[in-house]
Nucleic acid binder design. Structure first.
Lengths: 129, 129
DNA sequence: CACGATTTGACAACGGTTGTCATGACGATT
DNA sequence: AATCGTCATGACAACCGTTGTCAAATCGTG
């Protein structure tokens, strides 16, 4: 049995930000937002909190084109994302047929321990060109 | 009209490596292979050559879980990859129905300038667990 | 061959992320 | 409420892949 993480002010603050945001954000963005709100939390702590949350599958993580990792509080279960490149606004999407297709392709080629990444990026209707 | 790039020993060497490899490899791996073959090429030059090739769509680039960019000489046209996490061996795959599905999802949600990433990772049959 | 423009390569700088470690906070137990 | 072991925090340095810098070397055209 693993000990539950401690309920610290900092961890609560990070979780609160994630609950407020509806799109993906980087660790540094979250750190900036916290600073602006006057609830300053060390950058290392923000990174660590997000890692813990991601490991516990309480947040989703993905990498943007620049190699930054973005985090978002998502609903449980396997799903993918339609993400606005400009503002981060995100729509969760599901594609059962895609899942089956990916598994079948991998199986046909003798690959095991299969995982896949699938994200759709675009510009959302409220963002300028 | 843009000037054609110069035909230097270094660029030829990088292209030759890409032709030999059948899987994805990082810039640093390619740099190491060149050094081992005695055709030493500066690391900056390897990075620049790969950038140029990727911009010209002569090689595909993708990011692994660690955030490293991997390169591979691929066939022309839009396709995805089934990649061995262990050895990099790669199978090019196509999924016309997935393409249509992704475009439809984006359109339904009012997103434009849409692109998607889709890669399947696994362990291939010739690699140990 | 000579010359100008491009490319190279050693090195420094950059940016996101992770490690370090002394200090501080949590919370179970008295 | 006070004590205490343990875990979390945060300032900072280190890391690692990648990109920028710039003098020297190379390409290929005239």
């Amino acid at each position: 049995m693993v000990d539950a993480p401690r309920n610290t002010r900092q961890r609560r603050a990070v979780v609160a930000i994630l609950e407020d945001l509806d799109g993906f954000a980087s660790a540094q963005e979250i750190h900036d937002i916290l600073k602006r709100r006057g609830e300053s939390v060390g950058l290392s702590t923000v990174y660590r909190s997000l890692q813990v949350l991601a490991d516990a599958a309480e947040v989703d993580a993905l990498r943007n084109d620049d190699g930054e990792v973005l985090y978002r509080q998502c609903s449980a279960g396997h799903h993918h994302h339609l993400v606005c490149r400009s503002c981060g606004r995100t729509v969760e999407i599901e594609g059962p047929s895609v899942e089956r297709w990916a598994d079948k392709i991998a199986d046909e080629n003798g690959f095991r321990d299969v995982a896949h990444t699938l994200e759709i990026f675009g510009t959302c209707s409220s963002c300028p060109a």
